[in-house]
C-alpha cells in the first residue's frame, strides 16, 4: 500500500475513534451524577412509586402504540409496495416531512385537529375527548411511531423479489394468503426492525405529548378511571416528560437517573435491531 493510502487509513480510523470517544463522553461524563455524595442513588427514584408508574406507563403505552402502528402500517406498507412509482415518491416526501417536523409542531397540529378541526366533530360524535387525557398519549405517540414504522416496513416489502408473491398467486393463493404466508415471513427481519423502531420512537416521545397532553403527576387520583388505576399508570408521565419535570424542579440526580433509564432502553433496542440484521434508516 502506498504512503498516501496508509495515512488515509489512519485518518479514517482516527475519525471513527474520535466519534466513538465523543459519544461515550456524552454519556459517561454524567455517570458521577447518579452517585451523589451523601445522597441516595439517582436521587432516590428507585424507591419512588411515581417513577415506577412512569416506567410502567411508558412501556405499556409504547407497546400499545407499536401494536396499533403495526396493525395499520404493515398492511398499508404492503399496499404501497404494489402501487405505481408516483405513490412511492409521494410517500417519500410526506413521511420525510412528517419525520422532520419539530415535536412542538406535531403537538400543536394535534391540538388544532382535535380541538378545532375535523377530529373534534368525530370526538363529539363518538362521545370521547383525548386531549389532556392518558389515551391522548397514544395518539401523540402514534403520529411519529407510525411514520417511522412505515419507512422500515415499506423498505422491507420493496426489497422482496416480486416473483415470490406472483408464484404464490399463480399457485392459487389469494392476495391475503400471499401476504400472510409469503411476503410477511420473507420480510421478517425488516418487519421486526420496524416494530422495534416504532416502539422505541413511542417510548422516546416527549415534545408532542407535552403539548397535547401536558403532565398528569399533579392531578388527583380521582381524575383517573378504574382501568388506569388498575394498570398503575395514573398520576404518572411518560419517562421523558417526567425527566423534564425533575430537571425543571432542580432535581438533577433524579432526572439523570431517568435519562439513563431511557438511554439504556434505546441502546438495547438499537442493538436488537442490529442483531436481527435490520438497518436503521431515516429518523
Amino acid at each position: 500500500m502506498s504512503v498516501e493510502s496508509v495515512w488515509f487509513r489512519r485518518v479514517l480510523w482516527a475519525q471513527l475513534g474520535a466519534l466513538v470517544l465523543a459519544v461515550s463522553w456524552l454519556f459517561a461524563s454524567n455517570l458521577d451524577t447518579l452517585f451523589p455524595a451523601g445522597g441516595p442513588f439517582a436521587g432516590g427514584i428507585l424507591s419512588r412509586a411515581d417513577f415506577w408508574r412512569s416506567l410502567n406507563l411508558s412501556v405499556l403505552s409504547a407497546t400499545a402504540t407499536a401494536l396499533v402502528a403495526a396493525a395499520l402500517g404493515i398492511p398499508a406498507a404492503w399496499a404501497l409496495s404494489r402501487r405505481a412509482l408516483a405513490w412511492h415518491r409521494g410517500a417519500d416526501i410526506l413521511l420525510g416531512a412528517i419525520l422532520a417536523l419539530p415535536a412542538s409542531s406535531v403537538g400543536l397540529a394535534l391540538v388544532l385537529l382535535f380541538q378545532y378541526g375535523p377530529l373534534d366533530w368525530l370526538q363529539a360524535w363518538l362521545g370521547v375527548r383525548v386531549i389532556y387525557t392518558l389515551p391522548g398519549i397514544l395518539v401523540a405517540q402514534l403520529v411519529l411511531a407510525l411514520a417511522l414504522g412505515l419507512q422500515a416496513w415499506r423498505a422491507a416489502f420493496e426489497a422482496l423479489d416480486p416473483r415470490l408473491e406472483l408464484t404464490a398467486r399463480t399457485l392459487g393463493a389469494n392476495s391475503f394468503q400471499a401476504f400472510w404466508r409469503v411476503a410477511l415471513p420473507a420480510a421478517r427481519p425488516g418487519i421486526l426492525a420496524g416494530l422495534v423502531l416504532a416502539w422505541l420512537r413511542a417510548m422516546a416521545e416527549f415534545g408532542a405529548v407535552l403539548l397535547f397532553c401536558s403532565t398528569f403527576r399533579e392531578l388527583p387520583a380521582s381524575r383517573f378511571g378504574e382501568l388506569a388505576r388498575w394498570l398503575h399508570v395514573d398520576r404518572a408521565d411518560l419517562l421523558a416528560v417526567a425527566m423534564w419535570v425533575e430537571i425543571e424542579f432542580g432535581r438533577v440526580e433524579a432526572g439523570m437517573g431517568m435519562a439513563f433509564a431511557l438511554a439504556m432502553t434505546c441502546a438495547a433496542c438499537v442493538y436488537l435491531v442490529r442483531l436481527n440484521g435490520g438497518r436503521i434508516r431515516g429518523h
Binding site: L19, V20, V23, S24, W25, L26, F27, S29, N30, D32, T33, L200, A204, E205, F206, G207, A240, M243, W244, I247, V252, G255, M256, A259, L262, A263, C266, A267, C269, V270, Y271, R274, I280, H283
Partner: peptide, 21 residues
C-alpha cells in the same frame, strides 16, 4: 450501536447528558 445512540435516544435526554459533558 454506540454511534447511532445519540440519534435514537430522546433529544431531551441529549440535553440532560450535555449538562455533565
Amino acid at each position: 450501536t454506540v454511534i447511532e445512540l445519540p440519534m435514537m435516544v430522546p433529544p431531551a435526554t441529549v440535553g440532560v447528558f450535555l449538562i455533565g459533558a
